[in-house]
Nucleic acid binder design. Structure first.
Ligand SMILES: [Zn+2]
Ligand SMILES: [Zn+2]
Ligand SMILES: [Zn+2]
Ligand SMILES: [Zn+2]
Lengths: 152, 152
DNA sequence: AACAATGATGTTATATTATAACATTTATAT
DNA sequence: ATATAAATGTTATAATATAACATCATTGTT
């Protein structure tokens, strides 16, 4: 497999899933939303909102912060991307059709993020909440560190 | 126990621990640092940096953002407080002498935060990292939702 | 087709969160 | 007393995000 190819197909895959999800929910995946989703998937690591804005401006100089943040909000609401709270950045979700609470491994060096969702984590969230009489609604679980690739 | 008493003693307790930690590490818990730590503990829920700044200005009108952020940095470096990433706010650590990776339950309604550290969570962090050939350095684990008290 | 209603985008302005860079003061060690 | 380092003061600005209102596009109804 050539360099970039895996990423390319992941991006296409993501777009297809996004279209399916929007279709089945009566939502519109507009040109702008597609553009932003593609920009997010094209970057090898996580993406900052204002970097996205700069990219957008290249094709539409009138793009402004609300252009980006509104689009990010739409994509997040529909599980297509995630906000990574510990770095204030965004990343595409590789499986938006499966569930919406995702967990992350964030490499400090290369900015790449892997999802690490598991029932094990889900279970710990549940039991921790139960033990504390807490009703959970949103989980933030992010492990920052160094990925295998960057360790060498 | 009267209202506020639990919080008061928790605050005093926190200050004592802070003094001990600084003492044993050759660090200075200056007047400013004590003030900020106290302000954080006095609030019933989490505290925003600029709210702290407003409080500080009441006693020292010359206080400015770096005053607050530098002090917060010191307190965080020494495990005395935590930054809550999902709300961009700060909270005192009830057990800064025990460990430094803490996990949180955050009530959306009353802004109160409980630490929910457990070996169970530590173990999941370890196993998740191991399974992904990832070397963790900093964990963000925050469950947002509704606390028992606010549910009624 | 005309109209109303909704959703999406455009635009201006501003709010919120955080840091860089350099100056001054205070504490500590020699 | 002097040098050094640590802490604080000060100015300016960077980075992140939203409020409010205007315009345009899409859809459904009359
Ligand atoms: Zn995901
Ligand atoms: Zn890496
Ligand atoms: Zn803690
Ligand atoms: Zn509550």
């Amino acid at each position: 497999m050539r360099k970039g190819q895996k990423k390319l197909s992941a991006s296409l895959e993501a777009l297809k899933k996004a279209e399916a999800i929007c279709e089945s929910n009566g939502l519109k995946l507009t040109k702008l939303r597609k553009q932003v989703l593609n920009l997010i998937w094209k970057k090898p690591g996580y993406v900052k909102a204002y970097d996205l804005l700069d990219e957008l401006k290249k094709v539409d100089p009138s793009a402004k912060p609300p252009t980006v943040y509104r689009t990010l909000d739409f994509l997040m609401e529909n599980g297509l991307i995630h906000k990574i709270q510990s770095v204030n950045a965004f990343i595409g979700c590789p499986h938006p059709d499966e569930h919406n609470e995702c967990y992350f491994l964030i490499c400090d060096r290369c900015q790449k993020i892997e999802e690490c969702c598991s029932t094990k984590i889900n279970n710990v969230v549940s039991s921790t909440s139960k033990n504390n009489n807490f009703t959970p609604s949103k989980v933030t679980f992010e492990i920052a560190g160094t990925c295998q690739n960057c360790l060498n």
